[in-house]
């Protein structure tokens, strides 16, 4: 049973068409990696999934709910879908612990102690429990991104979206973030990852997609994708980045 389903999704920025009819679906527990050159619409597409961007044509269903302008639906979906951004977007005026407990307390109406226990558990999981009382500005990029992952997980989402989570990081810090993501993938979380880390795709993904010019060019298993790609565009892409 697919947990995310998109049917012919189209989106324009002014006259520029960013998405030219994307149809795909993601099964529960699946790890999907979306690759593609800059400006190919891959970020736009996953941002449509939790309505940070609005698609103008087509349909997106998340966990059986269709994304429309209905605020109730959007809020329901956002609390089921966690998102990790390229530039972390932690709240700079709150400590790490407050960053993680904010949404559980205000959206899920958990008690403070309960939320804090859960947050410490998650910080253990991403490997930085000792940073709980620091402010985001005092952490390294890799640590910030791990906090951002913990913040998204604190809402106990069914789906996690990663929008180029390692693109803003130093090479040394990429590994620590990818390790957390691998561990998450093994725990059975449904994940959509937009990334240029092909090593991650090879090792963890169940499926790899290539976006180009607002279109879904190729959809394949990692094995086939890297060793035996169907389309010429994929071959060109792989030859340029590998």
């Amino acid at each position: 049973m697919s947990i995310i389903k998109s049917v012919d999704v189209k989106k324009w920025y002014g006259d520029f068409q960013a998405l030219k009819g994307i149809s795909m679906d993601v099964a529960e527990g699946e790890v999907l990696v979306i690759a593609g050159p800059s400006g190919s619409g891959k970020s736009t597409f996953i941002r449509c999934i939790n309505r940070l961007e609005q698609h103008q044509d087509g349909q997106i269903f998340v966990d059986g709910i269709e994304l429309t302008n209905d605020l109730k639906n959007i809020e329901a979906i956002r609390s089921e879908v966690g998102m990790v951004f390229q530039s972390f977007n932690l709240f700079p005026h709150l400590t790490v612990l407050q960053n993680i407990t904010l949404a559980p307390i205000w959206v899920r109406k958990k008690s403070k102690t309960e939320a804090e226990e859960k947050a410490m558990e998650l910080l253990e999981r991403v490997g930085i429990p000792e940073q709980a009382d620091k402010f985001p500005g005092q952490l390294s990029g890799g640590q910030q991104q791990r906090v951002a992952i913990a913040r998204a997980l604190a809402m106990e989402p069914k789906i996690m979206l990663f929008d180029e989570p390692t693109s803003a990081l130093d090479p040394e810090m990429i590994k620590e973030v990818l390790d957390v993501m691998k561990e998450l993938a093994k725990s059975g979380m449904t994940m959509i990852v937009v990334t240029h880390e092909m090593g991650f795709a090879k090792e963890v993904a169940d499926r790899v997609m290539l976006f180009d010019d607002g279109q879904l060019v190729e959809e394949n298993t990692p094995d086939e994708f890297f060793n035996n790609p169907k389309s010429d565009r994929t071959k060109l892409f792989l030859s340029q980045i590998l």
Binding site: N50, R51, L52, E75, R78, S79, V81, G82, M83, F85, S87, N89, L90, F91, L102, A103, W106, V107, R151, A152, M155
Partner: peptide, 23 residues
């Protein structure tokens, strides 16, 4: 304020009022 802050607040499911007062 960086647009990312609005997006992050939306992404964790805060309502408009909560987004304004808390973030």
């Amino acid at each position: 304020i960086n647009n990312g802050q609005f997006e992050a607040a939306d992404a964790v499911g805060l309502s408009t009022l909560q987004r304004i007062t808390l973030i």
